[in-house]
C-alpha cells in the first residue's frame, strides 16, 4: 500500500499529495471486516437484514440486536465497529425526534440520510476525531413510499434499490442483482434476504451466524419498522437453505457435463 510510511495516513483530515484522505479509507477497512448487512427496497416496503456472527455459545440467542429503530417508520443496520454504529443510531434518533419536535411530522428518509451523511462527514474534517468505522443502511417508508439509503464513513450516501455492506458484500451484491426488486413483495423478499445473507456467509462457513431481519411495510406492518416475526424468519431460512443446496447441485451437474 502506497499510503504507509508517507506520513499522510497518520492523522484524520489530512490530504495526501494526490488528494486522498487515508484515515477515511482505513475506516472503510473496518467496515470490510464486519458481518454482512443488506437492505432491500421492494414494491411495498423495505427489508433490513444482518449476518450476526456468533462469537460464543454463551451468548443469549436473539438478544444483542443489531438492527435498530430510529423512529416508528425507519430503521438502521450497519457493518463495522458496532459501538460506532450504536452511537450513529443514537444520533439518528435525535435527528428524527427533533424533526418531530419542530414539524410535528415524521422525518422523511431522504432527510434523515442527508442529516446523517452530514454527521459522518463532520468526523472526517478534524484531526481531533476519527471517522466512523461503519457503513450504515437506512431503510424506511415516508410520503414517497419505501426508501433505502447507504452512508459510508466519508459521509457520502446514495439511494438504493438493494444495498449490501460488510465482509460478504460482493457475494451479496451479485445475489441482489439477480432479483427484480421493483416487482417483489415484502413476503417474497424476506426469503431472498435470508438467502443473500446465507450466500454472503459461505466464505466464513466455519463460524456460526444468526440471521436478524426487520421490515417496514406500507400495508404489511402499517408503516412501522418492526422485526420480521420469528416464524417467517425460520421459514425464510429453511427456504434459503434448500435453494442454496439446489444451486450447488446445479453447479455440480454443469461441472459433470
Amino acid at each position: 500500500m502506497t499510503s504507509i510510511g508517507t506520513g499522510y495516513d497518520l492523522s484524520n483530515s489530512v490530504f495526501s499529495p494526490d488528494g486522498r484522505n487515508f484515515q477515511v479509507e482505513y475506516a472503510s477497512k473496518a467496515v470490510e471486516n464486519g458481518g454482512t448487512s443488506i437492505g432491500l427496497r421492494v414494491k411495498d416496503g423495505v427489508i433490513l437484514a444482518v449476518e450476526k456472527l456468533v462469537t460464543s455459545k454463551l451468548l443469549v440467542p436473539q438478544s444483542n440486536r443489531r438492527i435498530e429503530s430510529v423512529d416508528r417508520h425507519a430503521g438502521i443496520v450497519f457493518s463495522g465497529l458496532i459501538p460506532d454504529g450504536r452511537h450513529f443510531v443514537s444520533r439518528a434518533r435525535q435527528e428524527a425526534s427533533s424533526w418531530r419536535g419542530t414539524y410535528e411530522s415524521p422525518i422523511s428518509v431522504s432527510t434523515l440520510a442527508d442529516r446523517m451523511g452530514g454527521y459522518a462527514q463532520a468526523y472526517t474534517l478534524y484531526s481531533s476525531v476519527r471517522p466512523f468505522g461503519i457503513t450504515a443502511i437506512i431503510g424506511g417508508v415516508d410520503e414517497n413510499g419505501p426508501q433505502l439509503y447507504m452512508i459510508e464513513p466519508s459521509g457520502s450516501y446514495w439511494g438504493y434499490h438493494g444495498a449490501a455492506t460488510g465482509k460478504g458484500r460482493q457475494a451479496a451484491k451479485s445475489e441482489i442483482e439477480k432479483l427484480d426488486l421493483k416487482e417483489l413483495t415484502l413476503r417474497e423478499a424476506i426469503k431472498h434476504a435470508a438467502k443473500i445473507i446465507a450466500v454472503a456467509h459461505e466464505d466464513s462457513k466455519d463460524k456460526e451466524f444468526e440471521l436478524e431481519m426487520t421490515w417496514v411495510g406500507l400495508e404489511e406492518t402499517g408503516g412501522k419498522h418492526v422485526p420480521v416475526p420469528k416464524e417467517l424468519v425460520e421459514e425464510a431460512e429453511k427456504w434459503a437453505k434448500k435453494e442454496i443446496e439446489g444451486d450447488d447441485d446445479e453447479e455440480d451437474e454443469k461441472m459433470e457435463e
Binding site: S3, L10, F22, Y26, A27, S28, K29, A30, R130
Partner: peptide, 16 residues
C-alpha cells in the same frame, strides 16, 4: 507502531 499513539487513528487494516 505509528498507529497506536491515540484512539483517533485507524491502522491500515482498520484497527484502533
Amino acid at each position: 507502531n505509528s498507529y497506536d499513539n491515540d484512539s483517533v487513528t485507524f491502522s491500515p487494516q482498520g484497527r484502533i
